[in-house]
Design a protein around this nucleic acid. Structure first.
Length: 807
DNA sequence: AATTGTGTAGTTTTT
DNA sequence: CTACACAATT
């Protein structure tokens, strides 16, 4: 036993002083957590389940390192989001006052490196950072010049392809060469022309896109071993959070900084890898132990967040993933309420009932609005929820949407700032040049772009000498020269800080002139936005003191995210996608639309690959594990998809859990039990009248269109008698349904009871054995393996002429 | 140069 | 159905 050592440390959550034990381990850390916190030299992998106190471990570990004598400047902690970086940074600062530890995002860190070392790869230090709309601007120019039709080749799609290629660390030259050497399709042909041109334009504009921030750093580190060595030595202790979400460039960066000093600590959870579609490589975390020698692995499996009931269902789900490292999730928390599955007729009812429930929780006084989160797979689902919350007068915030810095007038103003800072910035020039309107229209702009391209000079320079361009008419040339003069004057304005510079711009350009006299709501909003930008600039200046440089301000605006201003204590219900919910926690969580084609998303089903399906499962897992006390999943009977009402199919994930199903579809309830699952059994007879399923017997190429569209009732009888064909095999005519209608006011038919393994009889297919059950209530489905042909067929229990056999 | 019309596509999006 | 981009108007 080591010598008794008395020490005390700050509890980062409660600010309570905690006394250490004999082992030196603080009371508020478990043995595993302490092992991670106390680890010093060598690679460390922390596999942290949801709610296992991962952030605490990281911050405490950083504090511990500083306390035990490591120079703060040798520590680098990297996260993905500003928010995570901000929180972590604040917690570290609280633990070790006075010591500055660099806690930053990957992108910010890379931007910083490029400002310093970017010249090594042909970038000037005042480069601009292009967001998606800026990228579009460049790309449109490129497409126009290459005479590529943007209808067949949408810029957005091209960009995402380029992004994918970049994330695979393939340079334009390599891509073009690969294409030349192999038989490519027309998309590759286009990309092999566009990608190099796009990249050239970016460089000419002294600009980088988000991917480039990482990519250029990788290149810079590869081509300059001395810089890599210097940085490796400087950052001797590197920590990376959410390592399961790193992509290839990030992997290279982290490794490049951990070669001579492999004190790399990564934390993450393979089960929460949900950004594979964006290039994140779950393999990075899975192979960590093979990437380094002598890796210490710490597993944090105890959950401090959720009830036993919630954790059990989440764990039950995630264990269905085949490609997975085993983890034993457990909690000492109470059992809590069962996880519920609420069944609704449609999205309107779904939204209304949830709002009603939240209202009741708030009114009873034991819940705050901010206790609730409503999550969904796609943003489109937020709409009806918003309507319902508004109607019930419940305050809410939607994570996502348009970032402040992406609003038109703000981007316009920022374009001036960017142009001051980086006169080569083409997108900024084109944005600013005619706002406010000064008669420099599209044709003039195109002529200027062409001419400047030929001359090989930036647009601003070309504008300054526009008189020499014979293609331009006199008037246009004069306007351009005037604009150039204006920029000159702004750049030389006696401006101390960003705030004053912005004021100079507003003054000299008469930016707000057209809105000032106008009392319309739109103008009012725009002026308010401008005010807000001014105050953001002032705050920035104050925070930075005399240093208040333009570069830093622009970087902050460029790297801002719409998640940054989600305030968890805002006293409002939070609406967000399952993706943006990662890392958050709420007492009560609703997950909307747990339906096939929504989650798992239709795309992941269509691709038919397990990898994508498993990512969808992880996504649901992430959503479920956000809940502390109460978790509710919902599904509806029909839902509008792409504007058309469709019958839904229960998510296949539902059958992988054991949820308490509650039916909101009608008032008349009869209890029933299936496969040990308690269910409120309902027939919504009156409602069945208003909708009808339709056969999808087309065999054209469009047949990937999903399942059964709901049609209004005015259909011929013959149409009504056609068979329903869902994704599943199915259903007998609606004989069953008709009898139901006749029985409208009579006692409902008892449900047929099937269990996995039980024997059944089908009039056409003969006898068989039940293989699995899926779905609930009226849409409970049963998959049967038939004796005759050994084929599996799935039926909607309630519609198929399938009878349980005894024995 | 702004307005109106037409067509088309329609996940998720830490930066 | 709706949002968006682009084209064709005035």
């Amino acid at each position: 036993m080591t010598e008794f050592r008395s020490e005390s440390t700050w509890d980062d959550d409660t600010e309570r002083r905690v006394i250490s034990t004999v082992t030196g381990r603080p009371h508020d850390l478990t043995a595993n957590q302490w092992q991670a916190v106390n680890h010093r030299e060598g690679p460390l992998l922390v596999l942290a389940g949801p709610g296992s106190g991962k952030t605490r471990v990281i911050t405490r570990r950083i504090a511990r390192m500083v306390e035990t004598g490591i120079a703060p400047r040798q520590i680098l902690a990297m996260t993905f989001t500003n928010k995570a970086a901000g929180e972590m940074s604040a917690r570290v600062a609280k633990l070790v006052s006075g010591a500055f530890v660099e806690v930053t995002t990957f992108h910010r860190f890379c931007a910083k490196l490029l400002r310093r070392f970017g010249t090594a790869i042909g970038l000037q230090s005042n480069f601009s950072i292009y967001d998606t709309s800026d990228q579009m601007g460049i790309l449109r120019e490129v497409l126009h010049r290459l005479d590529i039709d943007s209808v067949h080749y949408p810029p957005g799609k091209i960009l995402s392809r380029i992004s994918k290629i970049k994330n695979d660390l393939i340079s334009p030259e390599q891509f073009a060469q690969n294409y030349a050497e192999s038989i490519g399709n027309h998309w590759q042909a286009v990309v092999s022309r566009v990608y190099p041109a796009y990249q050239r334009e970016l460089l000419a504009a002294n600009a980088v896109d988000f991917d480039d921030l990482l990519l250029h750093v990788v290149t810079m580190l590869q081509e300059n071993p001395e810089i890599r060595g210097e940085l490796d030595e400087r950052y001797r202790y590197v920590l990376v959070d959410e390592y399961q979400d790193t992509n290839l460039p990030q992997y290279h960066i982290v490794h490049a900084l951990s070669f001579d000093y492999p004190n790399l600590c990564v934390t993450g959870d393979p089960d929460q890898s949900i950004y594979g579609w964006r290039g994140a490589q779950i393999e990075n975390i899975l192979r960590f132990e093979r990437d380094f020698r002598d890796v210490t692995v710490v597993k944090l499996e105890q959950n401090y967040r959720s009830t036993k009931a919630i954790l059990r269902q989440a764990d039950g789900l995630i264990t269905k993933n085949v490609h997975r490292k085993h983890k034993d999730l457990f909690t000492d928390n109470p059992e809590g309420n069962p996880v519920e599955l609420w069944n609704f007729i449609d999205a309107a009812q779904e939204a209304d009932e949830i709002a009603r429930k939240i209202r009741a929780g708030g009114d009873e006084g034991d819940r705050n609005w901010s206790d609730y989160a409503i999550c969904y797979r796609v943003n489109a689902l937020s709409r009806q929820m918003e309507v319902a919350l508004t109607r019930h007068r419940i305050p809410y915030q939607v994570a996502g949407g348009v970032t402040f810095y992406e609003r038109a007038e703000i981007k316009d103003l920022l374009a001036y700032l960017r142009l001051v800072h980086n006169p080569a910035d083409q997108v900024a020039f084109l944005r600013a040049v005619n706002k406010p309107l000064r008669g420099i229209g599209k044709t003039t702009q195109q002529k200027l772009v062409r001419w400047a391209g030929e001359q090989g000079i930036p647009l601003l320079e070309a504008a300054a000498v526009a008189g020499r361009n014979t293609a331009l008419n006199k008037r246009a040339a004069k306007q351009l020269e005037q604009f150039s003069g204006l920029m000159e004057s702004i750049a030389h304005a006696q401006a101390d800080g960003v705030f004053m510079l912005l004021q100079a711009i507003l003054l000299q350009t008469h930016f707000t002139k057209e809105w000032i006299g106008d009392s319309s709501e739109e103008s009012r909003q725009r002026l308010a936005n401008v005010e807000e930008l001014l105050s953001a600039a002032r705050q920035y200046d104050e925070a930075q003191g005399e240093e208040g440089d333009l570069e830093g301000f622009l970087e902050t605006t460029a790297l801002a995210s719409d998640l940054d201003d989600v305030d968890l204590e805002a006293g409002a219900v939070t609406l967000m996608t399952l993706h943006s919910a990662k890392g958050l926690e709420f007492p009560v969580v609703f997950i909307l639309g747990v339906e096939q084609n929504l989650i798992p998303h239709e795309r992941s089903i269509r691709e038919g690959n397990l990898r994508e399906l498993e990512e969808e499962r992880r996504l649901l897992f992430v959503g479920m594990t956000r809940a502390e006390q109460q978790l509710v999943l919902t599904q509806t009977y029909r839902r509008e998809m792409h504007g058309r009402p469709m019958m839904t199919i229960p998510s296949e994930f539902l059958s992988e859990m054991d949820l308490t199903s509650i039916d909101f579809m009608s008032g008349s309830n009869t209890d029933a039990v299936w496969g040990g699952q308690e269910t409120r059994w309902t027939y919504a007879g009156s409602d069945t009248d208003s909708c009808e399923t339709q056969t999808d017997e087309r065999h054209d190429d469009d047949s990937e269109e999903i399942q059964n569209e709901v049609k209004p009732q005015k259909r011929s009888r013959s149409m009504r008698d056609e068979r329903t064909k869902t994704l599943t095999e199915t259903t007998q005519s609606d004989a069953g349904r008709r009898s139901l209608k006749a029985n409208d006011n009579a006692a409902p038919l008892p449900p047929k009871i099937f269990q996995v393994g039980s024997r059944v009889l089908h009039p056409q297919h003969g006898t068989g054995t039940v293989v699995s059950l899926n779905g609930i209530s009226r849409r409970q489905m049963v998959t049967v393996s038939f004796d005759a042909d050994e084929l599996m067929r799935t039926f909607i229990t309630d519609k198929a002429p399938l009878e349980p056999l005894k024995g």
